[in-house]
Amino acid sequence: MKRTIKAVALAALLPLALSGCGDDSSSNDDTGKSFAEKPASEIRDAALKDIEDITSMTVVVRTEFGEHALESEISTDTEGRCVGTIQMGGGETRFVITGGDYYYTADEAFYKANTEADDELAAAYDGKWFKTPSAGQAQYAEQCAPAEITENFSADDEFSVGDVREIDGQDAIELISADQSVTAWIAVEGRHHLLRLVLKPDVGDGGFGYTDQGSGAQSTAPFEGDEREGVVVTFTDYGKKVVAEVPSGDILTDGDTGA
């Protein structure tokens, strides 16, 4: 039985609120060793405060479910621009949201592995760009809409402080949830950005679940390569301009094959 991507699952690939209009290049005097030695609640609150001022970011997600692996990279900003690439089931899909319009494309392998398209339709759709009609945009727009982070990292959660570790070239202090299902790394120098979240499989789908349309079961199997198994979410490119351009060439409407 083929798997169908749930729109709500793709929407949850961005579990971080993007709001405010702060300068992402600003610095914070409370940094370094002194910050890493603070109580977990103060480190958590500093990261949550930083989230309020984010204007743009890139989210990279890696996980495995069943025999399938997923890797995605999505860049979004507070001006409604968003671009993303999702690799799953041996195929790839890309999307662009700009000017209130949503465009997407996918290769034949992606259609075959992740949708109900038959071989003929998958071949016809391969590499073609589609524009989603206004009636169907809402489910796709959610992929880049401001999303609540409270499910996995919030002021209501209790954390303990772990070790300082380098995450993508930056020193980060580790916060571990009381039930050890969520681990967060917060930058200790400059802006206290959230740099990485790791969700263990037993946290549930964590917003990253995919449903097997045959059994109805959801899973988030471990991602190989991190010492804490689960869904690995890395946050980068804070404040970087998001370039989202309307695709060139012919653009079809959902439901057309272009054949």
Rank of each mutant, 00 (worst) to 15 (best):
T4F: 10
S134T: 15
V203S: 13
F95I: 04
D237C: 02
R191S: 11
V59A: 12
R191E: 07
G207I: 11
T234Y: 05
N114V: 12
D157S: 09
V232A: 09
S248T: 14
S72F: 01
V231E: 05
K6T: 14
L14M: 14
A123Q: 11
A40E: 07
Y102A: 10
D45K: 13
K38F: 09
R62L: 08
A172I: 07
T132V: 15
G258D: 04
A113C: 07
G91Y: 03
S75T: 09
E67N: 14
F159E: 09
V161R: 11
V198S: 10
E37W: 11
A172P: 05
V61Y: 00
A138C: 03
R94V: 08
T150Y: 06
I149H: 14
A113M: 10
S26V: 04
S154L: 00
M1L: 13
T150F: 00
K200V: 10
S219E: 11
Y111T: 05
R3T: 13
A11I: 01
A109C: 01
A117Y: 13
A17C: 13
L252Q: 01
E142L: 12
G84L: 07
A184Q: 04
G136N: 10
A124L: 13
A244W: 09
L70W: 06
I186L: 08
E142V: 00
E92N: 05
S160D: 11
G207D: 08
S75C: 03
I149S: 13
V232H: 07
E227M: 05
V242K: 06
Y102W: 12
V198A: 12
D156A: 13
L197S: 01
A47P: 02
A178L: 09
D30C: 08
A40C: 04
V231P: 00
G162H: 04
G89A: 10
M57W: 08
T220C: 06
E73D: 06
S19K: 15
V83H: 07
I54C: 00
T76S: 04
V59C: 14
E189M: 10
I149L: 12
P133R: 04
E52I: 02
D179H: 03
A147E: 14
R165T: 15
E108D: 09
A184F: 06
T150D: 07
V61E: 02
